Amino acid sequence: MEDRFAGIREFVAAVDGGSFTAAAQVLGVTGSAVGKSISRLEARLGVQLLHRTTRRIDLTTEGEAYLGSCRRVLEELEQSEAYLATGHQQPVGRLRIDLPTTFGRRHILPALLALGERHPRLDLSISLRDRAVDMVGEGIDIAVRIGTLGDHADLVARRLGEQHLVICASPAYLQRRGTPLTRADLASHACLAGWRRGNRPAWLLRNELGETALQEIHARHELADGDALLQACVSGSGLAQLPTWLAGEALRSGALLPVLPDIAGAAMPIHVLWQKTWHMPPKVRVTVDELLRLAAADSAVFAAAA
């Protein structure tokens, strides 16, 4: 009977090591044995997984698509073996996590690094970006997202809390330019906005019925990083709509003052998402549990954690 798993470990080791020789050293076999095992795997699949030259190996398009599945198979096998060896489920293997840039760096990354210290066999690959990702296609195990979620049948979501927005400015800016009192006043003020490719500058504002909607603004400055946006606002460059988890310290100290509270107080949900599987791997479970614990303990950041 043909072994459907034959060659997978060699394939992943060769990609990670960059050569058959490096894979052979890890696996304790010869380089030629690694090469033959991968060739048999390619023949069984009917596709070429690697481009081979005398100096290096590179993934083909098919190989890149297959690599993620192979990694997950090997990681689940490692987790199962750890469970059998220890008698209880330990988080083992590499966990790929995608976080919102500023929020993730400020409020989630420290907790994840501490979690890694408590679990020496848990390895983390963390990306920080403010765009939607294809979790399944990009092999992301866990993501934290701010905003309304779409309908994804292959993902599970748990609410962590809410992000609340406030329009604010420095005392120096308000003394120089005056305090806006109505929505129409925004047209005569220097507005600061986050920058994202392909999106026009906009703030999330409330109308008279309490409904929130994006309203385009004329932005004097656009900044792609939340900390940079906060710094520009504190320095007196203009008005900014900022989340309270970012502007809270500056508001408490008086470095920023809130304006237009009747239209500025929009809220956006914060969720943790992970891929739906028949068995939740221990590395995913322990990390989701840690994020839920963090949200419940830090109401100043997660506002309305559930």
Rank of each mutant, 00 (worst) to 15 (best):
E78N: 15
L165A: 14
L113Y: 05
T101F: 05
R71G: 02
P100H: 08
S127E: 13
E64Y: 08
D134F: 04
T86L: 10
S69Y: 06
R129P: 00
G104R: 12
P100M: 03
R131E: 13
T148N: 02
D141P: 08
R56M: 06
H164F: 08
G68L: 08
L59R: 13
E81T: 14
G137Y: 07
L124A: 02
Q79F: 01
C70V: 06
D134Y: 07
G139R: 14
R96N: 09
R96H: 09
P110K: 15
L124Y: 06
T101Y: 07
R131P: 03
L59W: 07
S127G: 12
S80M: 09
G137M: 03
E117F: 00
A157R: 13
L122R: 01
E138N: 13
V73W: 09
G116V: 07
R121P: 02
I57S: 09
D123P: 00
T61Q: 12
A114I: 02
I97R: 03
T61R: 13
E162K: 14
G63H: 02
I142S: 00
H88P: 00
R145V: 12
L160I: 01
Y83T: 11
L77R: 14
M135R: 11
L122Y: 01
S125H: 10
R96E: 08
E76H: 13
L160E: 02
T102V: 03
I146A: 13
H107S: 09
T102E: 10
P120F: 01
P91A: 04
T101W: 07
D134V: 02
V156G: 08
L99K: 01
L112F: 02
D151P: 04
P100E: 13
R145Y: 08
L77C: 04
A65L: 12
L122W: 00
E162L: 12
A143G: 14
M135A: 07
R56T: 06
I126W: 01
A85R: 15
V156L: 13
R72T: 06
V133W: 00
E76S: 15
G116F: 04
P100W: 05
D123G: 10
M135K: 12
L74A: 12
R96S: 09
H107T: 03
E78V: 00
R105Q: 10
G139E: 10
R94K: 14
S80I: 07
V73A: 14
L165H: 11
M135P: 10
G68A: 11
